[in-house]
Design a binder for these strands. Structure first.
Length: 826
RNA sequence: GCCGGGGUGGCGGAACGGUAGACGCAGCGGACUCAAAAUCCGCCGUGGGCGACCAUGUGGGGGUUCGAGUCCCCCCCCCGGCACCA
């Protein structure tokens, strides 16, 4: 029982693959559409999140092909990364073998889903043909001075045994991959100067109306622009300059101390100036042992130390003490702050603890602050006081006015600061793209010549028990002549963050196997930008920022025109079961293979698209899957039972040719379905309601029971519409039924149905009659009555006359084709 | 703390300011069957009434409106992001 989805699905999958049905080539004469889903990491097998991601993308792709667009829909594998390496350590399977086996297996799974990819373009980031160009791109960054090495306190994950970029430290200082608390280590590492693009990355968010507001806000927060001023204090004894950054230059008259980060370079110098050198060293050492979580937790204990040195306020000439404070971060602003306890809560808490004076320089509009009695800082806008010539000025005016004044007199400079930091891309791991540089004792850092790329990853490597990258110990691989002088040099042992590999793959798809360039400019200019990108929201401040950065860099190099990679972004929700994300530890994982085996790919796809709108979390329900399967069986039976009449051909009858009410309703149902399904898919991306409309159409067709030639023709039109509209959702069963009903052409490439305007017009409408806004009656009336006619006819209804019982309505509101509201005094 | 997004039947979810609960799931009743499965038909927010009906109902409280799930104000709860960023 039930239709034989197993053989049907395989049959069509083989046909699509064999014929290259969904292969797309650049064609300037055709309108293009680039539909892309985030490519998977080859972890072993697809999970439900993948199934959802690829069901959405595939449905859209098939829909757009039917609408006549030239659709690029590629797939590949984000194939470098730690799990392969861990598998190599654990099961002694080489990382490349583990990865390639998984890629082949998952490719097979994607085909069994019925995905309409252009398989010719499959890429794998661990393939030397690909990472050669990843390395080439790195060299372009290096050439432009946007890749550099620096020694800095960096994020280190003990468990992963490598450093991490700031974006990869999440959930209160934990590793994005393994959730281990991250610690700070001082190391020399490679960085990409993403901060050079901070302003553009921020500004261009305004040009992305097709992105969810949520993601744009997250990126704005992450980039964290703040406008203010940089000003220099002078250390009294040595005359040394200490720079600070403030967004509240209007509080300059309220400065009562200066505080430095323990890592501030001047701290070391202070030891030779201050009689309290020992104390300073001890304090700095103690701060260094605090974890970054302790240091940066909100409300964490603020600790400080008077250094015995003083600084001069450049504006007032006042002398204030210099302290070292654990709450000052070295990697934001200048690593030193001007302390204004009266108007900054952190400074306030710190000042109270250490007995530092509080000086009020802004009064609230409706009261007077007294420094002694304050129990917290006043951070709001108010009126300046104790601020010389600026007294009486409201904060909003005072900030720009005082900065202008300060700049003119040389006290400060305008400055914009970003929270965004340069991207740390070194990884002390094996399974990644080697950073293509050589260290030479004479020449220093020497880039590997572009012609010598790729720097191949050795395949036979030994992993050590105690961890660490095997590349660092592979003397044979490490040793190489300096490309510049030829003397023995040493390769860079670190590999690149895998987020580099995924920052440009959507360009590579455009000319996937071109071995002369990273990507062909003409092809990229035809296909890019991606028109629809689909993936999880967890990449809001990771991949989605990095990819934007790379795209802008390519544009600046003249490699492509696009300045933004993704025009429209759809962030799909998680797949959950029993109220929680599917995970092995919770034991609530549903295996896509099982679902496809038991119900078929069409059922799986249909359920996924029907169960929830794409942005919502999707609650997995076995019963729901059965419901979807039941629907497909009903579609199958409907066609099977009416096969002889459906196999006939004939023109469809226009609305004008139908007189009978039943037939006109059927015709209307068909065309209203086309209209709303089209809108749901292309407009708000409400795939669940689109499916609901198709279910309604099936219900109507099932109840129709055609008799006679006219009815049979109408029925045929209904079934063909159902199959055509359902095709992007469930491509196999619909294609099979299409061919069973005698169609020679492929449904996949046959045009999407068009709604006939005349068939959308209603003959009659149900008008709601309200009294004082409460529903009282429903009446069937001809469509298109004017307000006056409508009101007249409703007021003449016997039931309404009875209800009014002689009372004269105070007012009557009539909305044509909708309702009449009769307002009466109670 | 700040910034987002949400709270609608037993469940997933629908509703241009205009019939709340489309569609599906679960449940209940019936038909078919020796029986079960499958399938088909019907019912299905809550309270009241034999009944046509009446009242009530979209987290809570106010407001705007002829009319509010939808708009405005206040509050509660859940989810997500950021968080000592100067």
């Amino acid at each position: 029982m039930g239709y034989d989805f197993r053989s049907i699905e395989l049959k069509w999958q083989e046909k699509w693959e064999g014929e290259g049905t969904f292969n797309a080539d650049a064609d300037l004469g055709r309108e293009k559409f680039y539909c892309l889903e985030m490519f998977p990491y080859p972890s072993g097998a697809l999970h439900m999140g993948h199934l959802r991601n690829y069901s959405i993308g595939d449905m859209l792709t098939r829909f757009l092909w039917k609408r006549g667009l030239n659709v690029l829909h590629p797939i590949g594998f984000d194939a470098f990364g730690m799990p392969a390496e861990n598998a190599a350590i654990k099961s002694k399977t080489p990382a490349h073998k583990w990865t390639w086996d998984n890629i082949e297996y998952m490719t097979e799974q994607l085909k069994r889903m019925g995905c309409s990819y252009d398989w010719r373009r499959r890429i794998e980031t661990c393939n030397p043909d690909y990472y050669r160009w990843t390395q080439w791109i790195f060299l372009q960054f290096l050439k432009k001075g946007l890749a550099y090495r620096k020694n800095a306190p960096v994020n280190w994950c003990e468990s992963c045994g490598t450093v991490l970029a700031n974006e990869q430290v999440i959930n209160d200082g934990r590793c994005w991959r393994c959730d281990t608390p991250v610690v700070k280590r001082s190391l020399e590492q490679w960085f990409l100067r993403i901060t050079d693009y901070a302003q553009e990355l921020l500004d261009d968010l305004d040009n992305l109306p097709g992105w969810p507001e949520r993601v744009k806000i997250m990126q704005r927060n992450w980039i964290g622009r703040s406008e203010g001023a940089r000003l220099s204090f002078t250390e009294k004894r040595s005359g040394a300059v200490i720079e600070t950054f403030t967004t509240r230059f209007d509080t300059i008259f309220g400065v009562t101390f200066l505080a430095l980060s323990p890592e501030h370079p001047f701290v070391e110098k202070m030891c030779s100036l201050s009689p309290r050198a020992d104390e300073i060293r001890a304090f700095v050492k103690r701060c260094a042992t605090q974890s970054s979580i302790e240091r940066t937790a909100v409300g964490g204990e603020k600790e400080g130390l008077f250094t015995g040195l003083d600084a001069v306020n450049p504006v007032t000439g006042e002398v204030v003490p210099i302290l070292i404070a654990n709450y000052i971060l070295m990697d934001y602003g200048t690593g030193a702050i001007m302390g204004v306890p009266a108007h900054d809560q952190r400074d306030f808490e710190f000042a109270r603890k250490y007995g530092i004076p509080v000086k009020v320089v802004i009064q609230p509009v409706d009261g007077a602050l007294n420094a002694e009695e304050m129990d917290r800082a006043f951070e709001d806008n108010g009126i300046a006081c104790n601020s010389g010539e600026f007294d009486g000025m409201p904060t909003a005016e005072a900030i720009p006015a005082m900065i202008e004044w300060g700049v003119k007199r040389g006290y400060c400079e305008r400055e914009v600061n970003f929270r965004l930091r340069d991207w740390l891309i070194s990884r002390q791991r094996y399974w990644g793209a080697p950073i293509p540089v050589v260290y030479c004792d004479d020449c220093g850092i020497v880039p590997v010549p572009e012609d010598d790329l790729p720097v191949l990853l050795p395949e036979n490597v030994k992993f050590k028990e105690e961890g660490g990258s095997p590349l660092a110990d592979d003397q044979e691989w490490l040793t190489t002549p300096c490309p510049r002088c030829g003397k023995p040099g040493r390769r860079e042992a670190d590999t690149m963050d895998t987020f580099i590999c995924s920052s440009w793959y959507f360009f590579r798809y455009c000319s996937a196997h071109d071995d002369t360039v990273a990507f062909n400019a003409d092809e990229a200019n035809y296909w890019m930008p991606v028109d629809q990108y689909i993936g999880g929201i967890e990449h809001a401040c990771l991949h989605l920022i990095y990819a934007r950065f790379f795209t802008k860099f390519f544009a600046d190099l003249g490699l492509s025109r696009a300045r933004e990679p993704f025009t429209n972004l759809l962030t799909q929700g998680m797949v959950i079961k029993d109220g929680a994300k599917m995970s092995k530890s919770l034991g609530n994982v549903v295996d896509p293979n099982e679902i496809i085996k038991v119900y078929g790919a069409d059922t799986a796809r249909l359920f996924i698209l029907f169960a929830a709108p794409p942005a919502n979390d999707l609650d997995w329900s076995e019963h729901g899957v059965e419901g979807a399967h039941r629907f497909l069986n009903r579609v199958w039976r409907l066609v099977e039972e009416n096969l002889p009449l459906l196999a006939q051909r004939g023109p469809s009858i226009p609305m004008e040719g139908l007189a009978d009410r039943r037939l006109r309703d059927m015709k209307r149902k068909i065309h209203v379905t086309i209209q709303s399904v089209t809108q749901d898919i292309s407009g708000e991306k409400q795939f669940n309601t689109a499916v609901a409309r198709l279910m309604e159409l099936l219900n109507a067709l099932q109840a129709f029971h055609p008799e006679g030639e006219t009815e049979r023709s109408l029925f045929r039109e209904g079934v063909e519409t159902l199959l055509a509209c359902l095709n992007p959702f469930c491509p196999h069963i619909t294609e099979e039924l299409w061919s069973l009903t005698g169609h020679a052409d492929a449904l996949a490439m046959s045009p999407w149905p068009e709604a006939e305007p005349a068939a959308l017009e209603a003959d009659s409408v149900t008008v709601v009659v309200q009294m004082n806004g409460k529903l009282r009656e429903r009446v069937e009336l001809p469509a298109g009555l004017s307000k006056e006619e409508l009101q007249e006819r409703v007021l003449a209804l016997p039931s309404i006359i009875r209800r009014l019982d002689g009372t004269r309505p105070e007012r009557v509101i009539a909305v044509p084709d909708k309702l009449v509201n009769i307002v009466v005094r109670d």
